[in-house]
Structures are given as C-alpha cells and as structure tokens.
C-alpha cells in the first residue's frame, strides 16, 4: 500500500472520510425534513390543492427558486455571516452544514413537490369522500403514496450533497475534498487526490445502492 500511494497518510484519510460522512449524514437528515416540509407547503398551496393560496405559493416558490439557483460555492461565501453566527467559525465540518442544508433543501423541496403531484387525484378524492381531514390526507395518503419518489429524490439529493461537501472542503470545512485540495492538489501529491476520489466514489455508489433497494422494496405499484 505504502509503495503504491507513498504520500497517503491513512489515519488522516480515514479521519477525512469520517468528516465527509458526518457532514453528509447530518445534511441529508436536515434536508429531508426541511425539504419535505417546504415541498408539502409548495404542493398544498398550489392550484386546486388542499390549502390553495396564491400568495404563499408565490413566496415559497420564490424562496425555493432563488436558493436553488445560487451556485453552491457562492452560497457558501454569501452565508459566511450566518455560519459565523450559528457555528462561530468558518473551519471544520460543522461550518459546512448551514450552507449544505440551505443549498440542498430547496432542491429537494422541488422533488418533493413533483412526487406529491404524481399522487393520483382520484385517491385524494376517495380519501375526502370518506371524511378524511387534511392532516389525515397528508399523512395517510400523500406521503405514503409518494414514498418511493420521495426516497429516490433524497438519494439523488444525498449524492449531490457528497459533491457539495467536497466543495465546502476547499474553503476549509474539512473532509475528503479538503484533503484532496490541500494535501493532494496544492502539494502535487496526486496519489492523495486519487485515493480521496476513489473513497468519494465508493460513498456515492453505496448511497445509490441503498436508495435503489429501499425504493424497490416499498414500491408496490
């Protein structure tokens, strides 16, 4: 191993992998919750839906679109004041979280909205005809019926988030991206960059595999 990758400090490599996994996991969890909430709000206030409201729909859609459109690397810079306020530092894995979550949640919210729109209107009508309340329709019909799409959406978002963590790493957030940039690129130790890349690829493949399997198991259509 050491002959093949002479410059790789494995302890450091695993520590960075841990940081990447940590950032991704927390960001995915928060993105799922916030994105689901935003996506539901976007869907429900839309035309012909339970809480149809043009004004709120417009406001939520505007927020989602703006944050979805800002390139991630610029978003990190724009969010420096917020990050300093929340985390107290621009260094380390935690410092990446606000930008990761704010960058990914609107992206996922759109996917949630699309997933919910795919739910058969007839089924919602049937639930109404049985006397369901709005919250029963949301939790017993909309979410369970769109679950496979919600899961494949969070899979795609998670993979995007792994990429975002690498970008965040370049500006000091730690993780494999940080390692590949500082140790690999800046010190021209190509073997470090290579190993970091391979580990990131493995993480992505594993996420995709888990996502596909869960989606397949719960999809009874």
């Amino acid at each position: 191993m050491n002959n093949l990758f002479p410059n790789v400090d494995w302890a450091q490599m695993w520590a960075s992998t841990g940081e990447t996994l940590y950032m991704t996991a927390i960001a995915v969890l928060a993105t799922f919750i916030i994105g689901l909430f935003l996506g539901l709000a976007l869907f429900l206030t839309g035309k012909g839906n339970l809480w149809e409201n043009k004004f709120f729909n417009f406001v939520i859609a505007a927020i989602v679109n703006i944050f979805r459109s800002i390139p991630f690397i610029i978003l990190i810079i724009l969010l420096i004041p917020l990050t300093l306020f929340l985390v107290g530092s621009m260094l380390g894995a935690n410092a990446a979280l606000p930008a990761l979550i704010i960058g990914a949640a609107p992206f996922y919210a759109r996917m949630v909205e699309i997933a919910l729109r795919e739910v058969d209107k007839g089924v919602i009508e049937a639930a109404k005809s049985m006397g369901s309340s709005n919250s029963q329709i949301i939790f017993k019909v909309l979410i369970p019926e769109s679950l496979p799409a919600l899961i494949s959406g969070i899979t795609v978002t998670s993979i995007a988030l792994v990429g975002y963590t690498a970008m965040a790493g370049v500006v000091g957030a730690g993780g494999l991206g940080n390692l590949a940039f500082l140790e690999g690129f800046q010190r021209t130790q190509n073997d470090v960059t290579f190993v970091a890349t391979v580990i990131i690829l493995i993480i992505v493949f594993i996420i995709q595999l888990i996502g596909d399997n869960v989606t397949r198991t719960i999809d009874k259509r």
Binding site: D120, A126, M130, G131, Q136, V141, P144
Partner: peptide
C-alpha cells in the same frame, strides 16, 4: 362517513394491502 362512494378507477391506495385499504376509512 355515512355517504360512501366507489369510483370508475377504483382509487385504491397502491401502498396498502387489500386489508389495509379496507381498514382505511375505519382509521379515519
């Protein structure tokens, strides 16, 4: 709950089994 309806395209929840579909209005 006293005025039930059946539909041309059945409108069952595909995520639920037959039993769970029938139980749905009872849950409601």
């Amino acid at each position: 709950q006293e005025i039930s309806m059946i539909f041309q395209h059945f409108n069952l929840l595909w995520s639920r089994t037959v039993k769970e579909n029938i139980a749905f209005p009872l849950e409601i």
